[in-house]
Design a protein around this nucleic acid. Structure first.
Length: 266
DNA sequence: ATGGTTGGTATCCAA
């Protein structure tokens, strides 16, 4: 059982490399963020041909999320579902119920600047997500939340922590919101398997040779409840997209589970 | 303090 997350920064620009990667890995479920495409233009055919069901919601130019899955989920919903969802919110989160577990794919707002209204919305977004978990989920039930959280949780997760204290992806306030999700009953799956520093999922295009110089951020995450953790075999960062001819700024964050994920706990 | 690159849409915005 193989589940992964990838910020595509345009599904159309990365379609070919995603297809190749799916064929190579046999990934069961891929969560995608920043598809940057309206629903009518989503290339679902190209993924259906490979045996994937496609669920997506997007906007022109910005945001947009998708789940590609071999197994058909019982139900799929868009937005946080608290009655406050804007069109943008719906293009930032997909919730899917599978036979043996629940899965949420998120693209958390970046926030722009600490004093920008969008940063306040980012903090609120975490609180709304936490409320959703409290109201509709339980830490004792199998749940995975994957995606681009736009937060580096700890100092070892960003290349220059002392310089980034006021960055929207490292400010104390947003890290606190991230940890409030963990405190509810989620585990940072990558950190469960990897303790070393300088393990990044995002490398800014604008910094020359950022991968080689290890100038990156760990802002993409896979958070799981304990019944899922007990079925997890490994979690790792696949750097391949960063070295492709048409490089992406994000990487694939991958997780491997026992074949019958969570059935023993269901 | 600022720049650098990429994608989508237009000659600028977001990351």
């Amino acid at each position: 059982m193989f589940i992964a997350t990838f910020n595509a920064n345009s599904i159309r620009a990365r379609k070919d490399i995603i297809q190749k990667w799916l064929n190579k890995t046999g990934c069961n479920i891929l969560c995608i963020q920043e598809t940057k495409v309206q629903d009518k233009d989503f290339p679902s055919k190209d993924f259906q041909e490979l045996g994937y069901n496609c669920y997506y919601k997007g906007q022109k130019s910005y945001n947009g999320v998708a789940i590609l899955s071999k197994e058909e989920p019982n139900q799929v919903s868009y937005g946080i579902g608290d009655g406050k969802d804007s069109e943008e919110d719906q293009a930032r989160i997909i919730r899917a119920s599978f036979k043996d577990f629940e899965l949420i794919n998120v693209y958390v707002p970046q926030g722009r600047e600490i004093d920008h209204p969008n940063f306040k919305k980012k903090l609120e977004w975490f609180r709304r997500l936490l409320d959703h978990l409290k109201n509709h989920h339980s830490p004792s039930q199998p749940l995975l939340i994957l995606g681009d959280f736009n937060v580096a949780p700890e100092e070892r997760d960003v290349y220059a922590p002392e310089k980034k204290k006021n960055h929207v992806c490292f400010h104390e306030s947003v890290r606190k919101e991230f940890f409030s999700l963990l405190d509810w009953g989620l585990f940072d799956l990558f950190r469960h398997f990897n303790k070393e520093e300088k393990q990044y999922t995002f490398f800014d295009y604008r910094i020359p040779k950022s991968v080689e110089r290890r100038l990156g951020w760990r802002i993409d995450h896979i958070l799981v409840t304990s019944p899922v953790l007990s079925q997890a075999k490994n979690c790792y960062i696949d750097l391949e997209p960063r070295t492709w001819p048409k490089p992406s700024d994000h990487t694939f964050l991958c997780a491997e589970f026992e074949p019958k994920l969570c059935t023993s706990n269901a």
